[in-house]
């Protein structure tokens, strides 16, 4: 009996690794090259970045340099000098589906999700078919009742000792533990790991660029112009008093 339990477990572990490896290569294959931006889009993005840089590192400049830069940039931003298509100012943001760049981004997300979902469904089906609802191992140390939900998911026996671990719980423990193995096989930046993929799903804004589809660049420029105006009031040059600092500390 004991032997029979161990065998499918070993199988499944290999299966888990193999699907991870497969998923990694499927994602790599399906990724399309990042699309090249045209000159105007580049200009729009980088000039906004310049304003942000100016605001963040204003302290590096003497007051007069900062003020003259700020005035030029604010005027340009308000005029819409850097916009990709100045005609679209004031119009509501277009349907992101109609923008080819946005379409591309969405397609990529969809592809990523597909690569997640398909093997996930398969492996879940496999697990359900073979290993639902039985105990797979016993921990060598006692635990309190609180751990029951963590270690015995999938079995509804109230009186079972907490030290017994159900197969489903073991699956989840493996899922976390496999990360280092994937790192070893596929290199550290792999897409086999579900955790990172899930993390991305939860927080898609983190990785996305600032100019996602549906954003109105003109509004971003106007907001930045306002930020710059505000920052202008609290300018402080880092070089002020540096002679004394050098004499004192170096």
């Amino acid at each position: 009996m004991k032997k029979r339990r161990n065998e499918p477990e070993a199988d499944r572990r290999y299966l888990k690794i193999l699907t991870g490896v497969l998923r990694h290569y499927a994602t790599v294959l399906m990724q399309s090259d990042p699309k090249k931006l045209d000159l105007k889009a580049l200009k729009e993005q980088r000039n906004l970045m310049r304003g942000i840089n100016l605001r963040q590192n204003a302290g590096q400049l003497p007051l007069h340099s900062f003020i003259s830069r700020k005035n030029t940039l604010v005027a340009d931003y308000k005029r819409g000098a850097y916009l990709k298509d100045p005609e679209s100012v004031g119009k509501p943001a277009g349907n992101p589906m109609s923008d080819p760049a946005g379409m591309d981004q969405m397609m990529n997300m969809l592809k990523g999700n597909m690569a997640m979902i398909v093997p996930q469904t398969l492996i879940m089906g496999w697990i359900n078919a073979f290993f639902s609802g039985f105990v797979i191992m016993k921990l060598p140390f006692p635990l309190t009742i609180r751990f029951k939900t963590m270690l015995q998911s999938g079995i509804a026996t109230r009186d079972l000792d907490v030290r017994w671990v159900s197969s489903l719980s073991w699956y989840f423990l493996n899922l976390f533990g496999l990360r280092s193995i994937f790192n070893y096989i596929l290199g550290s930046d792999n897409s086999a790991d579900q955790m990172s993929a899930q993390m991305q799903q939860m927080n898609p804004a983190a990785g996305a660029s600032m100019f996602g589809p549906g954003q109105d660049p003109n509004k971003m420029f106007l907001a930045e112009a306002e930020n710059l105006e505000v920052a202008g009031g609290t300018h402080e040059w880092v070089i002020e008093g540096v002679e004394d600092r050098v004499l004192q500390f170096l």
Binding site: V238, I239, V242, E243, R245, V246, F249, L250
Partner: peptide, 13 residues
């Protein structure tokens, strides 16, 4: 000039 040089050595001793 003195200030700028001071700043540079402040950043890199």
């Amino acid at each position: 000039a003195v200030r700028y040089f001071c700043r540079s050595v402040e950043l890199c001793e």
